[in-house]
Design a protein around this nucleic acid. Structure first.
Length: 697
RNA sequence: GGUCAGGUAGCUCAGUGGUUAGAGCUCUCGGUUUACAUCCGAGUGGUCAGAGGUUCGAAUCCUCUCCUGACCACCA
């Protein structure tokens, strides 16, 4: 054996040996044991793995290897996400660097270009998962754009439509004029900003607004019903002198108006503000759209037509001033503005026809299942967070105006206007009037609509019998920031489509931060590349580093010193083995361990305790506790104390040394698979460590 | 405005009713030809945020206060 453990020389070979042997595939046949199954949260097929991925890989792989060693039929199913808008955004940035844009290509060409780009990233990502030691079953690898997966998504959509849970609605949506698509409420960020608050004269009133440019879309003026100042006006029409001449407008009373804010009077623009939209619905107001998808004012804005929102705001303010209609401007008004989570452009609320999913009936079922404990969050607080999200879910806009994704299987009739929905096949005529003038909706599904079906979609399209055997899966392990996007939707759609929850338990992991506890970001320059760490210290050390020192649910502060320390631990294990193997001939194995020696008895008792502690820690999802116990046991009790003491009576202690070493390797294997398997090989064992039985206390 | 999490050694964090509160890193001193300097031994370092309560016993359970962080919300 080498003097030090050389991770980079052996890791790839060991991984290949595992994969080739079929060890990653579940041993299904007639095992009486309950299966263990994790569906991997599919990483985006548009980027390299970052340090956060390393954490989930470590946690899921630890659990997978542990259950596999316990003899359970174990499946960890890998996959990749096409990540609709994310990938298209990344790709468009690349196009921009090349001096091109998405408008230079037709739909098919653009799709193919993104496909090629995504495939390249995907295979890179997969090799990175291998480098981290992920023991997932590659023979069952899935991609969200696999034809079989798409078929499932279509099937669900059609069923939802037939059950009247999906509808075509003209509603106010969050539109990003830069990305050219609408978003769900979850994909909108809010940022604090200072903007001028304009106090403008409006007939007999003065009212405050930050958006004077939308005044051409006003269809009412509102006050609070309890506001005594304006009670005489309610229900009447007022005449207003505006920039485009005089017009008449209704005064309404609505509880949504805060009498304390500004003057207590507000202009109502249903087409461009969500509060106003709701007010408009309550009072049957006309929806007058003055801003288009291009983010510019339209013909209804008279001479302001063609201006961008920003330009129009300045000009309208100036003109109001000139016309004597501007009373004052508060330049220090702080408020929050909705921006695109991707490109940070200001979101324009616009009325648009989109596909919506009614969430309330689905939410009800999800809450029932949670109440019955059919799906449990391992930490109570995430249960609360999930419930909070369910309580605040609105109908979900599932249409996106991008090409990278699953195209919606809906065809509109040019004659009668009716929609024809199919499970993917192209219809030849309208289902209502039989006209042949039908055209497919150009939109694609929100990525989360398809990934919300991931657990059953993957298993139903995997090997025969997988769905029946593994569903509901044992555990969903994922990050807390995607609870609202993904976890709660998987529960909703899983229950809807299969009648069962998609997983029995949810384990939520925290973020990986830098050693000062700062959030990792490119702009801060504190990124830690997991593959560089693997190269430098070995995959085992990195895996230990992202598990060490904090509960799974907490954020973790990761330092390179820590990873280095774990590399040293891997080397320590290696040298313990070297010591044990050094002066002995393993063929003279003595299996009888009735040693009367006090030290032998002590270490045997110690490892028994360690087996108990590690097993319990893994059963309760506390790999951090398991890891600290192992570190303490192997390094300090086994190596520093026991092993030192055997030096004076080496031959006698040899059987105990061997036994404790082997048991230690088994316990360490889920956490540090490479170094332990490498030593196992040196021991000359026939069976690989990865499929060896878990020790019994 | 609402919700959630956290405050334990210099730093990053474990520990949730039971001896004298722990680990890693850091720091100080000493050692080491003989498995490993990616090493070994010894040591420094804590009013467990604060106050009150429950208990034979509280870092741990309850109440209040202070501080930090995150998230949500239709602040015109």
């Amino acid at each position: 054996m080498e003097k030090v453990f050389n991770s980079s020389a052996v890791e790839a070979k060991i991984y290949e040996k595992w994969e080739r042997s079929g060890a990653f595939q579940p041993k299904k046949p007639k095992s009486p044991k309950q299966p263990f199954c994790i569906i991997m949260p599919p990483p985006n097929a548009n980027e390299d793995l970052h340090i956060g991925h390393a954490r989930f890989v470590a946690v899921e792989d630890i659990l997978t290897r542990y259950h596999r060693m316990k003899g359970e039929p174990t499946l960890w199913l890998p996959g990749a996400d096409h990540a609709g808008i994310e990938t298209q955004y990344v790709f468009e940035k690349k196009l921009k660097d090349e001096g091109k844009s998405r408008f230079d290509f037709d739909r098919e060409t653009l799709y193919q270009m993104i496909w090629d780009y995504s495939m390249e990233k995907k295979s890179r990502m997969e090799s990175q998962l291998r480098a981290l030691g992920a023991s997932c079953d590659w023979t069952r690898n899935k991609f969200t754009l696999d034809p079989a997966i798409i078929k499932i998504v279509y099937r669900t959509f059609k069923k939802l439509f037939e059950d009247e849970l999906v509808y075509r609605g003209n509603r106010l949506v969050n539109y990003c004029t830069h990305c050219g698509t609408a978003y769900s409420n979850l994909e909108v960020d809010h940022v604090e900003r200072t903007d001028p608050l304009y106090f403008m004269k409006y007939g007999p009133f003065t009212l405050a607004t930050v958006r004077p440019e939308t005044k051409f879309g006003d269809t009412a003026v509102a006050v609070n019903p309890k506001d005594k100042r304006y009670v005489e006006w309610v229900g009447k029409e007022i005449e207003v002198k505006g920039l485009l001449g005089k017009f008449k407008i209704k005064v309404i009373a609505d509880g949504a108006v805060d009498p304390e804010f500004g003057t207590g009077v507000v202009k109502v623009t249903p087409a461009h503000d969500s509060v106003d939209w709701e007010m408009g619905r309550r009072h049957n107001l006309e929806v007058k759209q003055v801003i288009g998808l291009d983010g510019r004012l339209n013909e209804k804005a008279g001479r302001y037509q063609g201006l961008t929102v920003k330009e129009a705001r300045r000009m309208v303010a100036e003109d109001l001033q000139k016309a004597g209609l501007l009373e004052k401007v508060d330049e220090n008004y702080r408020h929050s503005v909705a921006v695109c989570y991707r490109c940070k452009s200001v979101i324009e609320p616009l009325p648009m026809e989109q596909w919506f999913l009614k969430v309330v009936p689905l939410v009800k079922k999800a809450l029932v299942a949670m109440g019955k404990g059919e799906v449990k969050f391992t930490a109570k607080r995430f249960d609360k967070i999930a419930r909070h999200w369910y309580a605040n879910l609105y109908d979900w806009n599932i249409s996106r105006q991008i090409v990278w994704g699953i195209r919606i299987p809906a065809w509109k009739c040019g004659k009668c206007g009716e929609w024809t929905i199919t499970a993917g096949e192209t219809p030849d005529r309208c289902s209502k009037c039989k006209s042949k003038e039908i055209t497919q909706d150009s939109d694609t599904f929100d990525t989360w609509f398809s990934s919300g079906q991931w657990p059953f979609a993957t298993l139903q399209t995997s090997q025969k019998g997988d769905f029946e055997f593994f569903y509901p899966t044992s555990l969903m392990e994922t990050a807390y920031d995607i609870i609202p996007f993904w976890v709660i939707r998987m529960i909703m759609l899983g229950l809807y489509e299969t009648g069962k929850v998609p997983f029995r338990e949810v384990l939520i992991h925290g973020l990986v931060r830098d050693k000062e506890g700062q959030k990792i970001s490119k702009s801060k320059g504190n990124v830690i590349d997991p593959l560089v760490m693997v190269e430098r210290y070995g995959a085992d050390a990195l895996r230990m580093g992202v598990v060490w020192g904090a509960k799974v649910e907490s954020d973790i502060a990761l330092s390179e010193e820590n990873i280095r320390g774990q590399r040293n631990f891997a080397n320590k294990i290696w040298n313990v083995a070297r010591f044990v193997l050094m002066e002995t001939n393993l063929k003279s194995k003595i299996l009888n361990l009735k040693s009367k020696n006090k030290d032998d008895q002590w270490i045997l008792k110690e490892i028994k305790t360690t087996i108990e502690k590690v097993t319990k820690a893994l059963d309760t999802y506390r790999p951090n506790e398991a890891v600290e116990e192992l570190y303490e046991f192997v390094w300090h009790r086994f190596a520093d104390i026991y092993l030192e003491k055997t030096k004076s009576r080496r031959a006698e202690a040899q059987p105990t040394l061997e036994l404790v070493l082997k048991e230690s390797l088994k316990l360490l294997h889920p956490f540090m698979p490479f170094v332990t398997e490498a030593i196992w090989e040196e021991l000359g064992e026939k069976e690989m460590l990865i499929t060896s039985p878990w020790p019994k206390a």
